[in-house]
């Protein structure tokens, strides 16, 4: 049931990136075989999309295909993988993605006309309109009366991140407590395996990108399990916005590990149906995660926890 509620299936590029991340998280070496079944289970999808994802990875020289044997890893190190992922991102670099990224980086303003975007990206009007349609589906842009489009608030600045945590502290524990909470135990189990594997592995494999993917999946899983349809919808949209516009910054490795342990403890409580406890643990987890570095401090001057009013 929870699976059917998912609003968007990952596209094949995203799935290909996920496959590569999992392969590296599991410590697969160059030349080792990738079994379709294993990755279908790990990603929570059927074998057909996994085949398409493998094909994309082969086209990017990340996997090698041997007749009647299947797919084998063709890269050996984390740095090669990072470069390969970057290449794939460029290949995937849809116009919607570029527009969103430029807005998050403050390269373009929060109100845009179609013709300004046509000029900036040197593409057709139709391409821009399609990209805006994609972004509007996730509530990232809305059309204003006339021809302008407005970006909705993003999770792209210290103050916005702070407000995002305020919102999540209100909504995420309530999503667990609302009557009818039901977690997708299959996906929860897969996610648990991924986190346990990571925690048992070398620290270097817990990168910010890997953590961001797992964090997004974990919090989306909780939101999808909520018995309250409005909390569910609002939280899923917010997590998508976070994932798309907030790059996570740099978190010390100790905290990345600690956050994953907190995820596992919340899953433990949910699986034991101790929802009150899970909601409290979620509050603690979010409070710990929101601790912000002071924005400015120096000799004799008190540090600020939020940006200065500008």
């Amino acid at each position: 049931m929870a699976g059917a509620r998912r609003t968007s299936r990952p596209n094949h590029y995203a799935l290909a990136q996920q496959v590569l991340s999992i392969a590296l998280e599991r410590g697969l070496k160059s030349g080792e075989h990738l079994a379709e079944k294993t990755f279908a289970e790990a990603c929570g999808v059927s074998r057909t999309p996994i085949r398409s994802a493998f094909k994309i990875l082969e086209e990017n020289d990340i996997l090698r295909w041997r007749q009647e044997e299947g797919y084998f890893l063709n890269i050996g190190s984390a740095s090669q993988a990072a470069k390969a992922l970057q290449r794939m991102e460029v290949a995937e670099d849809s116009l919607a993605h570029r527009i969103l990224s430029d807005r998050a980086e403050r390269r373009i303003g929060d109100v845009q006309s179609v013709s300004a975007l046509v000029r900036r990206y040197a593409v057709s009007r139709n391409s821009v309109l399609n990209a805006l349609k994609v972004l509007s589906k996730d509530g990232i842009v809305t059309q204003l009366p006339g021809r302008a489009w407005a970006f909705q608030p993003m999770v792209d600045s210290p103050n916005a991140i702070d407000e995002s945590f305020d919102f999540r502290l209100m909504a995420e524990p309530q999503a667990v407590l609302a009557p009818g909470f039901n977690i997708d135990s299959n996906r929860a189990g897969l996610l648990r395996n991924q986190m346990e594997n990571l925690l048992g592995s070398n620290e270097d494999r817990i990168t910010a990108a890997v953590f961001q993917r797992i964090d997004f999946e974990f919090h989306s899983l909780i939101a999808e399990g909520s018995g309250n349809r409005f909390l569910r919808g609002t939280l899923l949209a917010h997590h998508r916005l976070r994932n798309a516009t907030h790059k996570g910054g740099v978190i010390p490795r100790f905290r990345l590990r600690q956050a994953m342990i907190e995820h596992l403890e919340i899953l433990d409580s949910l699986e034991r149906n101790q929802l009150d406890l899970a909601a409290d643990q979620m509050t603690v987890h979010l409070r710990r995660s929101r601790i912000r570095r002071p924005e400015a401090a120096n000799r004799g001057i008190p540090p600020l926890l939020k940006g200065v009013r500008t």
Partner: peptide, 12 residues
């Protein structure tokens, strides 16, 4: 630092 919101039109 804490002044991200003071900036716009960032070059590529």
């Amino acid at each position: 630092g804490g002044f991200l919101e003071a900036y716009r039109d960032i070059p590529d």
